[in-house]
């Protein structure tokens, strides 16, 4: 606010310089103020990246006598306590596992999730192999890919606790693996 008023309309000292300043300030402030809500939003959007992995879960599924002695695989549901965002489910089905008895005392466990794209693997119609209906991958009962399977690896074997197995109890460590890659990578 000038003290002595010139009789002419006020000319800015240097309009270009003033405008440059105005433009710079506008752009800087504009960027800053958009980045606050966007930043807070992106942070919440990306929050899952820093959350815990699924982790593993050791669970008792059966007694060894429950499994067919001829080596036919049997599907078991995994039911566990599960936290989904805010909800804590006391008993929630989280997946399923094939158990197969070999001989008297050996048991193998396979995740029923297809290593190709995560579809649910089943036993084929004539009961001779594992078969994934989504993209027609086929696995023998040892979990190895067979025929024209598109799956990059065989079925994922899960750890069966050997000490408890001696006592006739089948305890399996349930883990999830990344689909679509040749190596078995935990997720």
């Amino acid at each position: 606010m000038n003290k002595s008023l010139p009789s002419e309309p006020i000319e800015p000292d240097d309009p270009e310089r003033r405008q440059f300043l105005e433009k710079t300030v506008s752009i800087v402030l504009g960027g800053a103020m958009v980045s606050v809500p966007v930043g807070a939003g992106i942070a919440t959007l990306l929050a899952p990246l820093s959350s815990d992995k699924g982790g593993s879960l050791k669970i008792r599924l059966a007694s060894i006598e429950d499994l067919p002695s001829d080596g036919t695989p049997k599907l078991y549901q995994i039911v566990a306590e599960k936290k989904d965002a805010w909800t804590k489910y006391p008993n929630k089905p989280i997946g399923s596992v094939f158990l197969r008895r070999i001989g008297e005392s050996k048991v193998v466990a396979f995740s029923s999730s297809c290593p190709h794209a995560g579809c649910s693997v089943d036993i084929d119609s004539d009961g001779s192999a594992f078969f994934c209906p989504c993209h027609a991958s086929s696995f023998d009962f040892d979990g190895i890919t067979q025929g024209k399977s598109v799956s990059p690896r065989g079925l994922d074997a899960l750890e069966v606790d050997p000490d408890l197995l001696v006592k006739g109890e089948v305890w399996v460590t349930f883990v999830k693996f990344k689909a679509g890659v040749a190596d078995k990578v935990e997720v």
Partner: peptide, 25 residues
């Protein structure tokens, strides 16, 4: 000031936006 002397016309960019940006901030 402006009542006594007509001010020169301004432009929305950057004259007005500059003021808008500061107040929005």
């Amino acid at each position: 000031n402006s009542a006594r002397r007509p001010k020169r016309d301004g432009m929305f960019w950057p004259d007005q936006i500059f003021r808008d940006a500061i107040v929005c901030f």
